[in-house]
Write a protein that binds this DNA or RNA. Structure first.
Lengths: 186, 186, 186, 186
DNA sequence: AATGAATGAGGGTTCATTCAT
DNA sequence: TATGAATGAACCCTCATTCAT
């Protein structure tokens, strides 16, 4: 049948399915079969385009992370025109969590990166992007902490059962955005 | 051979091995066989004491998380007598990372909890403990953010390749510990 | 704890549980654990009283078959006072099927006996009993066939989905009970 | 090694082996390994072609039953040209028992069908076929009983140790084939 | 170039049986 | 005597991967 006459498209199709599969069941539970079924391609395709399942997973994680990073451009835009930075940060975080699947993937990447060094650049992509933006609005020194604060909040939010403490987040962000007081520089 | 006749000890032995196994290869890659080998017990033991691998993993994660939480008591003590809170926080974080295996486990728990609701209480244990301590030193409002900041930092540290920006962390912590400025309350 | 001080009773208790277990899941699916649980005795008891699972199963099947055979005494009584033998046979068959579990066991025994010669005497118990009764009412020559007819009917009834052809059964029984016609002896 | 490239043949090969395996050790004792070994195919093949062992067993039982049913066509032919129906019936029964393995399978199917409703149609195939033939020669009313008689005889013959009472069978068959007497219709 | 049949290693789990207690 | 802890063989099944087609 040799379905599509477009190798690149099929390759992408498989990656996309892999991303969804990972989001659904986690890195440790994806299989060739699941991905192939999700993508609607023959089983053989998956190994034809990717030598190894690990390779395919890695490609998927890179894809996911790139998508996340791309989302940061919206953050940059909105923050640039914002007149209430803390509120905007909080709002962006909230909306980020709306796509739970995507947010989850971000942490899958991080965890996978711990044991798979070749994934570290991908994992770093999001963090670096976030830091870059934070640094732009909180200054080079505070940017690092602001990024960590947001990252920690997002992770905690993913496993939290009840409502989130958005006010606590806002307060923290505000604090890191405000001009430093005398003591701190000591 | 029917070895040792001490069920409770053997149970604990298996859990301990499971914790180590998870730290080594991750939640998604532990197997009965690996755990049994690590514990030095026959394969059958693992299923004799735990109906299911999932049960065993859950027990192990709970164990790991409890251990982490217990470690927070040291934090409380040191912070109580500290004369430079930010520096002490930074120092505690650094030492926390020294036991990379343990730190890693903490995030395994979090990620696993996302898909396994029965693990959420365990995952929450660490976060709640950390928040409690932070609240004690940063006040109820800032405590939430301080905990998120630390958590985010630790996660990022785990996958970072180069040296850590301890100064950035210190600055952030200091900022959240310092009395708030006028603007922030807006 | 050494529960009962009555080994014989406990032995019987286990056999009874085994009979029920076999009726529930079939000879091929009984386990020590299931029987022990059903009997409410410790796992060890089952192997303490019976060297082997096969031995226990055999004992249970013998028990079941003995029970069936005992039931035939009722047949004898009712048939003796019956004024409509075919109708009584049909009625007895119908009532026999009421205890589906027991009827099923009878065929478990037969099938098991095919491969386990030591069970043949047990399996034969029912058939011989049935034949004896049939011979009493249909004569020595026709008794054999009457027993086969009833046995075949009961087996078919066990797996039939819809209503049973009781009238067909009655006609057959009547035919075998009636004095033979001239032709038949040819 | 990836042997033969003929899926349909291999599928059939596995079913055939399963039939033999069941005949040898019974439904409750067949395993993937045994079937694979008997078929001379790798273990993985069995699960590749049949999602579940139960599925494979069901397929095998259907096959066996279909084979039995096909054998009934010989019965029909021989009976049609017979000048001594009872003797022919007896002869057919005797020859049926010659293939003990096949006869046994028939009862395996019946017993399995009791607990596995999806097997009932298969089990019914043989019974319905037998009834159809019997009805053709004994009339619609007596056919049911004749089929039951034969079925019961065959089952009893399978577990009988000594010689079979062929004369008893003949007498019974003859009786059911003969025109009914006055009494019977009462 | 593309596919699905084929394979075997390995995983989770069950369980008869043994045996220290 | 009686028990439940302990064991390891064997089970069913999944799957990455290979490869004939």
């Amino acid at each position: 049948m040799t379905a599509r006459r477009d190798p690149e498209a099929r390759r992408q199709q498989i990656i996309t399915a892999a991303v969804r599969a990972i989001a659904e069941v986690g890195v440790g539970n994806v299989t060739h079969r699941r991905i192939a079924a999700l993508a609607g391609v023959p089983l053989g395709s998956t190994t034809y385009y990717f030598p190894t399942l690990d390779d395919l997973v890695a490609a998927a994680l890179r894809e996911a992370t790139e998508y996340s990073r791309a989302g940061l451009e919206v953050w940059a835009e909105e923050l640039t025109v914002s007149r209430d930075l803390p509120a905007t940060f909080v709002d962006l975080a909230r909306r980020y969590l709306d796509d739970r699947e995507q947010a989850l993937l971000e942490y899958e990447v991080c965890l996978a990166a711990v044991r798979a060094p070749e994934l570290r650049p991908a994992a770093q992509l999001w963090i670096d992007g976030l830091r870059g933006i934070c640094a732009r609005f909180a200054g080079p020194e505070r940017g690092f902490a602001l990024a960590a604060l947001l990252d920690g909040f997002l992770l905690q939010a993913l496993i939290a059962e009840g409502p989130l403490d958005m006010e606590g987040l806002r307060a923290g962000v505000a604090s890191l955005l405000s001009p430093r007081t005398a003591e701190e520089s000591t």
